[in-house]
């Protein structure tokens, strides 16, 4: 039985806690899952209670003493609620941390708007020097987390209950999954959008590249693969990477279609598959958007 990204995170975090530099900082979320680790490392598994501002402040203070904090909660509480702490207690102090969010854009769709976090990557993208990992399969989580913890800068891992069928652990740079030859339109799928994207262009000559690291975006790979038409499919706010792609291709005539989660609060519950459909991110919705962009397949 395959594990979830969250389970992979817990397992890997327990591993990296063997390094005395590592400290896990929690705000109640996942505290039960980390109870064994907390018993093992009482000084390095810190649960501050439901206090997200303090969670990030504590991470900043730990990093100032040379520790490597791993900070974890649901994406909206981790990134949106404590945004100024991320900006000042980490970035402005000149220290780094590894933030691990769960819930992604709408994993907890039935919980409603309060638990949705489609703007997290866009918010992190306002800050300088961050690496953003968006794994598309549970097997991608462990190597990404281990590498992030071994670094010294700031990184955001965006975990989801959504997953592709195939794991691509080495896909920080754009990895070609389907090659339609030179000059073909390029579709870049980020994280768990890959399967639906492949399905959507199955009957079209479109090159499909996959990445689980939208920041820093592989602009060199993009320039090598892109023709005159580029399609971005991202599992968070639509257009989050438009700036990066436009800057990378500024010297070339090109057209860009940026697909992702819409801005509107839909005020609807259901499951993540329903929200995929409502945001046009299921295979049928992506196909409609691609048809409109490239013209209907002949």
């Amino acid at each position: 039985m395959t594990t979830t990204m969250r389970e992979e995170f817990v397992r890997t975090a327990e591993e990296v806690l063997a390094d005395p530099r590592s400290v896990l900082v929690l705000a109640d979320i996942s505290a039960a899952a980390f109870a064994p680790a907390a018993a093992h490392h009482p000084d390095r598994v810190v649960n501050v209670g439901i206090r997200e501002q303090l969670m990030i402040g504590v991470a900043g203070g730990l990093a100032l003493t040379g520790q490597r904090p791993i900070v974890h909660s649901y994406a909206p509480f981790l990134v949106e609620r404590a945004y100024e702490q991320i900006k000042l207690d980490l970035g402005h102090q000149g220290v780094g941390a590894v933030l691990v969010g769960i819930g992604a854009s709408y994993d907890r769709a039935a919980s409603g708007r309060t638990h949705l976090g489609p703007a997290d990557v866009a918010l992190i993208d306002t800050l300088d020097g961050w690496t953003v990992h968006v794994p598309g399969h549970p097997d991608e989580v462990r190597p990404l987390l281990r590498a992030a913890v071994c670094g010294s800068g700031s990184a955001y891992l965006r975990l989801s209950t959504r997953s592709n069928t195939t794991a691509y652990p080495e896909a920080g740079g754009l990895r070609v999954v389907r090659d339609a030859g030179p000059g073909a339109p390029l579709l870049v799928a980020v994280g768990p959008t890959l399967d639906a994207a492949l399905d959507a262009v199955a009957d079209r000559p479109v090159t499909v590249a996959y990445t689980h690291r939208p920041r820093p975006f592989d602009t060199a790979g993009l320039r090598a693969l892109a023709g005159a038409e580029v399609i971005l499919v991202e599992p968070y706010l639509a257009g989050t990477s438009t700036r990066v792609v436009s800057e990378a291709l500024a010297d070339r005539p090109h057209r860009l279609l940026a697909l992702g989660v819409g801005r509107a609060d839909l005020r609807r519950y259901g499951g993540p598959e329903d929200h995929d459909r409502w945001h046009g991110l299921d295979a049928a919705g992506l196909r409609r958007s691609v048809d409109a962009f490239l013209g209907s397949p002949t």
């Binding site: 400290v23 000084d43 810190v46 402040g57 504590v58 203070g61 730990l62 100032l64 520790q67 207690d89």
Partner: peptide, 16 residues
């Protein structure tokens, strides 16, 4: 911001 950073600093020193 200072008190949260101070709590984290105190925790880091304790962990070390």
């Amino acid at each position: 911001h200072g008190l949260g950073l101070g709590v984290g600093t105190a925790l880091g020193l304790r962990a070390q």
